[in-house]
Design a binder for these strands. Structure first.
Lengths: 342, 342
DNA sequence: CTGTTAGCGCTTTCAC
DNA sequence: GTGAAAGCGCTAACAG
């Protein structure tokens, strides 16, 4: 592999000159620039990114930490989309993406910290939202550059981009109310996630705001899987006064709920309405097609990356927060009284 | 940030000693090892991965190239699984994963080559299988270390791990035949992919082997999307003598086919049988649940990574190929004559 | 077992 | 506009 030295010799200049034409310095005569370019081509020279990093003290890489605990099967549809979003901005800045993803949260935390501390990455985007994750405290204390997709409950000075989950819960529930349902239950995700807490809050808000009574037995927690959604729904249907509509905090769980309802012989949306969250591809493929609140995953990625780029370049230090809205998508599972049709 | 030099001073040793304890050399007294460890801890020292890479001439990172052309929406379920597989072996070897993924195949190729040439990654795993992709020729000519998930048609000396797609096509078709169907059509993916070609071959083999006649009009190409599957199926159903079973080369297309069939008023599996490929989560969630041939995606990732690790460590030079079998998963869409039940 | 000494390939003052 | 020289932080012979 030829080095800059080789190129310099061949072009009859010094290495610093070669370095300059590579980095696009303007204080270089067009002639030498040409000569150097030619030499690089002839030698098939490609600058060594590692050496460049060492000298310039920037890795040119950012880390993406994807929480992938077993419950997070839902991450499947989320994952490629955030990456697309992130990638779309990183590539403009010439950054690479290092992926950190393990089944074990401990390992994940260790790897994230290690990647940052070893200077392998300049910063990180973390997708997670556990109610209390020691990772963030470490990150903040060590003054690492990072952006969270989700949000933290503690008032740590953290930059994040999140979707407005309280509103998401509110919109979904409100839609069911407007569609004419009256006994609305919620199947929430594990409460160790902030996102779950937020959506529950939105649900409660819509319920009480509509003058309905919040019933404890109408709120059940489940994992993010289809099976747990089905189980949860079955329990709800077995109540003395079963709900006539179900808001599941995730499409996958919603699909489980749909199954439970159908199995029990009830009709959707006539007897029971259902709405999920995400607008997973699954939602439109199901029969009946699932109403849902669409989350702008691609955009979450875009903004997380943009903010991180700012943190890295402008040396920005004030944390920046950003909240993106969801969009109601009405399909077939939620139009009991024909008020809506999709 | 403290460096090795700082640690060395504090521990009263030389930098090479520090280096040795870091790399776990055995020719080191327990005492000094302790002393150095203590110094590292006190200074909160973390070795600089970039510097280490420069000196040792290995990046400690491998690239994963994920083809994500628009047609490849199906990559959604594929993607996280391969990564899990790859990650499970990389982490054992202390390697990191750099993700290369763009919508534009040109850019993708450029980035892949750049990452390798700039020594940012030691090797790469490429998921793609276009019939003729110039990338592979380059990779081979430049003697890059890489493993393909999929396979190439040209006889380039390439290491790859693939699933046995001819067999997959054969199994699916054969199953339909055994289930009692007689007019079996195939909806294939775009023929620019080797995988499509292979599955078609398997389909033809099963057809002719069963003494049936291969009918041109029963083989239609589609993209990998649901819509294109639905369109393709509609065309098939409009034939003078429509098929009584459909083998779709992918679950997503199969779901489209199912929709077209149901819309046309036919029953599944009584009137028309359907089988897909992949065992996408979608397959088990659909109603009727989709019969399919399961592809061992996680394992593909595992083996690709293992082979790459060998290439990198043993300096292995002989390309290694590996072919993994699929598994028939019979569900509800393919048991016309009650021969099968799932 | 441990220290000395060269680099790894590039960036970046600081001169001219 | 261009060159010389001093690192960036670590590894890896080579001595001893």
């Amino acid at each position: 592999m030829p080095t800059m030295k080789d190129v310099a010799q061949r072009a009859g200049v010094s290495v610093s000159t070669v370095s300059r034409v590579i980095s696009g310095s303007d204080r270089i005569s067009a002639a030498t620039k040409e000569r150097v370019r030619a030499a690089m081509k002839e030698l098939d020279f490609h600058p060594n990114a590692i050496a460049r990093s060492l000298a310039s003290k920037t890795a040119g890489t950012i880390g993406l930490v994807v929480s992938r605990s077993p419950e997070n099967a839902f991450a499947n549809s989320f994952f490629p989309e955030v990456i697309r979003g992130i990638g779309s901005v990183l590539s403009k800045h010439g950054y690479y993406l290092l992926l950190i993803m393990t089944d074990d949260p401990e390992v994940e935390r260790a790897q994230t910290l290690a990647a940052l501390r070893s200077r392998r990455v300049d910063g990180a985007i973390v997708t997670s939202s556990r109610v209390s994750d020691p990772l963030f405290r470490h990150l903040v204390e060590e003054k690492r550059k990072f952006v969270l997709i989700g949000r933290v409950l503690d008032d740590l000075p953290v930059s994040y981009v999140d979707n407005d989950n309280v509103k998401v819960g509110y919109m979904a529930t409100r839609h069911l109310i407007e569609a004419g349902y009256r006994r609305i239950a919620m199947i929430s995700g594990a409460t160790e996630y902030v996102v779950s807490l937020d959506r529950i809050e939105g649900y409660k808000k819509a319920i009480t705001e509509a003058g309905m009574e919040f019933r404890k037995e109408y709120l059940v927690n489940a994992g993010f899987t289809r099976e747990s959604g089905e189980d949860a729904c079955r329990k709800l249907l077995a109540l003395e006064e079963p709900p006539d509509a179900i808001f599941a905090a995730d499409d996958t769980m919603a699909s489980g709920a749909v199954r439970a309802i159908l199995k029990s012989g009830l009709r959707i949306p006539e007897d029971v309405g259902v709405i999920g969250v995400n607008d997973d591809p699954l939602a439109s493929m199901m029969r009946p097609a699932l109403s849902t609140v669409r989350i702008p995953v691609f955009e979450l990625g875009v903004w997380a990356a943009r903010i991180l780029m700012d943190l890295l370049s402008n040396g920005e230090t004030v944390p920046r927060q950003m909240v993106l809205p969801g969009t109601l998508v009405v399909r077939e599972t939620s139009s009991a009284r024909g008020l809506f049709s999709a």
